[in-house]
Design a protein around this nucleic acid. Structure first.
Lengths: 209, 209
DNA sequence: GTGATTTTTGCAGGCCGTGCAAACTTTTAT
DNA sequence: ATAAAAGTTTGCACGGCCTGCAAAAATCAC
């Protein structure tokens, strides 16, 4: 084997191009007009393909906008299980997620737009969360496995759900703020708050540790 | 005013009847055949109304199954704000939610079936969560108000999202277990874990406080 | 009973998403 | 180069969800 990844031929290049065009068109149009005033036909037209082709790339209109998977279940699970056992679960989850966040920040242009559009069209958030339910289920078993408890226990299920919520919050805040505090920082802040039991903040006085 | 609630006439009684019939039909059919193998027409037929009438009662097929609102935003918000300031936020949220859970337990037959059906048809969960996003937004402002911080801060947003996740977990576990540990107990367990920072459980040895 | 109000229903229509088979393009082998 | 194989795009037909509108039917108020 000369190289692990064979150089993609013209065919795959064209596919990627079409995919990008569809995503870009979808985001632009929905950003301009709102979700309800954009049809799949509009998107296909703007990307210069037939409406039928749209569905060769995405199972749903929403998927072109939100992205099919915003965390890769398998990779994340693996990374989580590789974290040394001494590290507490919540911290281990953060560590397992961080590479992902870094990748998103590298593509911040795309993701900021995506989340801005989602924020403006709440119907999309449901779909996003729904799709992340698959990841959550993976996480439940991974957490249970790592701790040696049953996946039916409260702890794994609660922790997976809560971590998902924390991640979502961090990402939405990142997008709302336009990307100024880094996503990794925001996530760390969220997970730290979690690990401290969400103790109430003191309004006026800031306690630095 | 002789009484606060005027006795409902035949008209309102019939409406309630139709509504119940539609919900019951929807749940029964989807439970039997799965979400994809039940059409609105089927449900309407089983409830003995026209398909068009179905949409006079529910905005969506899913809504007849999941219920339009599984927590009442306004009531919960009020209750939350009435909890004395000394009570920490997480605990106050639990207190504000408990009456709701009690109501659900009173109707456990309906709710257990509902959540069983949702568990079997993940597409429904997305919708459920999506609809609870409205509640979450209410909670964010309520938490911020109570603490005297900005609704843009991390704490209110994170806490609202996390509380929602914890509530959802409790309810799903309650349904999965068939209602044996009481819903209120499960919710308390979840919120206690939250307040303790999700510290890792010890697998074999149980520590009772 | 009569008229006003509300609910139900049918109808037409737009959009989403899918299966299928024909046309087309790229790749592979000769 | 040429032909066969493999993969992609497209059109067509169809079922299902959901909406607006106006006519018909039921209920209510007098």
């Amino acid at each position: 084997m000369p190289q692990q990844t064979a150089p993609p031929g013209r065919r795959d290049r064209k596919k990627q191009q079409t995919r990008q065009a569809l995503i870009a068109a979808a985001l632009r149009l929905v950003d301009e007009r709102g979700l309800d005033h954009v049809t799949v036909e509009d998107i296909a037209e703007a990307a210069d393909v037939s409406p039928r082709t749209f569905f060769n790339y995405f199972a749903t209109k929403d998927e072109a906008i939100t992205g099919d998977q915003f965390v890769d279940d398998h990779e994340t699970r693996e990374r989580f299980l590789r974290v040394p056992r001494e590290v507490p679960t919540v911290r281990a989850l953060l560590l397992a997620l961080e590479p992902l966040l870094t990748v998103m920040e590298a593509d911040h242009e795309l993701w900021l737009l995506r989340f801005r559009v989602m924020d403006a069209n709440p119907a999309l958030i449901a779909g996003l969360i729904g799709r992340s339910a698959a990841v959550e289920r993976e996480l439940v078993t991974a957490i249970a496995l790592r701790l040696g408890v049953s996946p039916e226990d409260t702890y794994p299920q609660l922790t997976a759900a809560v971590a998902g919520a924390a991640l979502r919050t961090a990402v939405m805040r990142w997008a709302a703020a336009g990307g100024t505090p880094s996503l990794v920082e925001l996530a760390r802040e969220a997970f730290d708050l979690l690990a401290h039991g969400l103790t109430d903040p003191t309004p006026t006085i800031k306690d630095n540790r």
